[in-house]
Amino acid sequence: MPTIHREPRFTYDDLVDLVEGQLRVVELTAINAEIGGPGERLWLSEPGTGADVYRLWRKGKGARTYWAVDQDRPWDALVWLREALAEVLERLTRPGSATRYALEEGREERDLAVLTELETVWLSGLSPLSEVFGPRGADLELTRFLLIPAQAELARATAVRSRMLREHFGTGPQAAQRVATTMGWEPAKAQKTLSAWDEYRGWVREGAAHARATVPVHRPAGDTGLPDVLAATLMTAACGSEPVVPDRPSPVALPDELAPWYVFSQYLGASIAVADEATYAPDADPRDYMHLVPVAMVLDLGWTVRDGLIVSLLPHNGFGVAYDEEAVRAGGGTPLGSADVPLPPGQGTDRAIPPPE
């Protein structure tokens, strides 16, 4: 989490006031009761005022600790929140066998309160998308990032179970009957379970073929000095699901340094594939730092060339890069507020081939 305020510049009370007194936030008391130490606080932006998580906590080690306020985007915060709340989530996964619930009456209600706040963080990450594209856009994103991974994990677990039974009972004509007799299952369930290992691998191969046929791969317009596969990976990450118009020149003059990373996006117009200086690291996932940015906006922000990439410090809002609409217009694009902009292109394509049951 990036630190935005800290001691010794501000006292503890100042840090609290910088959040509660100057920002519109709600406190996540149930989560903080589980993960926070003495004096630590956790907040979330109020609905409609952005989407940020703020944490006031003690950082550092040993005698070199200090109070700090960190700020994170909701979906980034969910990574460390889920890790910190692992015991709570484990109890909610197996409530019927949770020793803590047997020992402590009412513990489940506190855990459910934690879950409610965790859901609120999830939904705050979706709210900017919902405001722009409506509930359908938010639902597609939730399905893509939450439901499909959960379904795929269940399919993998079922495949492991299938392999275990196949190794014990074999795969011959009588295998399903032996499984059914030994396990006390219906023959149909036994047969389906034995088939799950092959079905999962078939699903992966079918998905890979679908990806090769449907997922756009974009390559830089010129020589970047990088290996071809790496350059294509970076450009593809920047373009994401943006529809690209091939061979369309930029109406904004391009400096030579920017030209290899130029592309024309149907919605953003003349654009450059840019690595965000705030998140760029050579070993990071390009999808976390590569973005298409209107040419005019890059010219205004400034840039450097690092590791063969165009690097610039990009402005952000609650959803992602905050695009300058005038720069979009200057490059021949369609500003986000226009009625001509549909749901995010490519959203929900992971559902084309659902995981095997």
Rank of each mutant, 00 (worst) to 15 (best):
G318S: 10
S250W: 01
S97H: 10
Y66I: 10
D283H: 11
E90C: 12
V121F: 00
D283T: 14
A339D: 14
P2F: 07
L103N: 11
T233F: 07
S271V: 06
A327Y: 00
I148C: 09
A296C: 03
T116M: 13
N32M: 11
R94Y: 13
R163S: 08
T334Q: 06
T3A: 15
V311M: 04
E206M: 10
V274K: 02
V295T: 07
T334E: 03
T99D: 12
Q266I: 10
P8E: 10
E242A: 13
D13H: 11
G333C: 01
E199R: 15
T65I: 10
T304G: 14
A152D: 09
R73G: 08
I148W: 12
S195W: 02
I310S: 04
A275H: 03
T143Y: 09
D256Q: 15
L309F: 03
G96H: 11
S45I: 03
D247E: 14
Y262L: 05
Q22A: 12
D276K: 05
A296F: 01
D14T: 07
T29P: 01
A190L: 05
A86L: 09
V88I: 07
L126P: 01
R136Q: 15
Q151E: 12
E104T: 15
H210V: 09
A86M: 08
D340C: 08
T99G: 11
R73H: 09
A159M: 04
T3V: 15
P251F: 07
V245M: 08
P286L: 02
C239E: 02
E27L: 06
P355G: 04
T99E: 13
T158E: 12
E242P: 08
A270W: 00
V341P: 01
S195E: 12
P294E: 00
R287P: 13
R161L: 14
G337I: 09
E277G: 13
P246T: 06
R110Y: 10
P128W: 01
A211R: 10
P220E: 06
G172K: 03
R6E: 12
A339E: 14
W203S: 02
P260E: 00
L78I: 12
V295Y: 00
P187S: 08
V293N: 01
R248F: 06
S162W: 03
A86I: 09
D223M: 14
D139M: 14
E105L: 13
T181K: 13
T120P: 00
E325Q: 13
A77K: 00
A159V: 03
A352M: 07
V217Q: 10
V25R: 01
P355V: 01
G332H: 00
A278Q: 15
V274I: 05
Y12R: 12
Y66D: 07
P149Q: 04
L301C: 08
L123G: 06
S127W: 07
I4C: 08
